[in-house]
Structure formats: C-alpha cells, structure tokens
C-alpha cells in the first residue's frame, strides 16, 4: 500500500479548546506509525505558534511547546495561513522558529507560509485530512 500523506489542521486558538492538544496528539501518533504528516495552522489556530505564551495562570498544560519540536517526530512541514496571521494583526516575526533535519542531518525551516489559492492548492494535495 502506498504511503499516505496526512494533514492535521488546527483551526481554533490554543487553551480555549482542547482540540489543538488532541489534534497534535494524533499528529504525533501518526508520525510514530511512520506516516507522512503535515500540520497546518488555520484561522485562530495560528495562535498556537506565537512567541511568549504562558498558560500557567490558566492552570493548563503548555502543550503548544510541542510545535517547535515537531521535527523531532519527523514532521517536517508546518503550514501557516499567512492571511489568518495578518487578519489577527500578527506577523511571521512573532512566530516561534520550527526546524527539522533532513536525512543528512542538515537543518531546514519547517514553516510554510501560504495564503489564498496557493494555500487551498497545497491543502488539496493530501490523502487524508483530520481537522481540529
């Protein structure tokens, strides 16, 4: 059976809902099963990657710290909707860096900022999409 390409999209802000945390858990398990996994941050999901988060006052686990470590799980692509960033007054400079190593241990940027038709075209390339 050919390898399937999975897309895990997070569209809600972290902490307000558990969706992001449970979605990321699924992404990591699929990666552990050797699947090709891409994570996409859409709509309010872009808040997952903002710098300077502190969830301690909420009494909630700072699970968004998993995102910069996605490369350790061999998840090499993190798509961010650039239009969603702009609509929320955010810019790429306010996002945490996310990198991965290729098979020769060279480090690469995992972030892929896309918007509009290019984003839609990219999202349509995956075999299975789990939205959270």
């Amino acid at each position: 059976m050919p390898e399937r390409r999975f897309l895990l999209s997070l569209s809600r802000a972290p902490y307000g809902h558990l969706d992001g945390q449970e979605g990321l858990d699924l992404a990591l398990v699929l990666a552990a099963f050797g699947q090709n996994v891409t994570v996409a941050l859409l709509d309010d999901g872009v808040y997952h990657l903002t710098r300077g988060q502190d969830s301690s006052a909420l009494g909630l686990k700072p699970y968004t710290r998993q995102l910069p470590a996605l490369g350790d799980f061999d998840i090499r692509e993190l798509i961010v909707d650039r239009a969603a960033l702009q609509a929320r007054g955010l810019s790429a400079s306010q996002l945490q860096a996310v990198t991965h190593e290729d098979d020769d241990f060279n480090e690469h940027d995992s972030l892929l900022l896309l918007e509009g038709a290019a984003l839609a075209e990219k999202l349509a390339t995956f075999d299975i999409h789990f939205g959270f």
């Binding site: 399937r4 999975f6 699924l26 398990v29 099963f33 699947q35 299975i128 939205g131």
Partner: peptide, 20 residues
C-alpha cells in the same frame, strides 16, 4: 485503546470519514 488504533484504521481503510 490508544490513538494508534485510529492511525492503523486510517492507514488500512479505503476511506476515512470524520464526524465533528
């Protein structure tokens, strides 16, 4: 059981349908 059961089902099935 664990999330691995969903991963396995998604890998083996012809189609995956999610109800949110």
């Amino acid at each position: 059981s664990g999330l691995g059961q969903l991963a396995e089902a998604a890998i083996e099935a012809d189609r995956v349908v999610a109800f949110h």
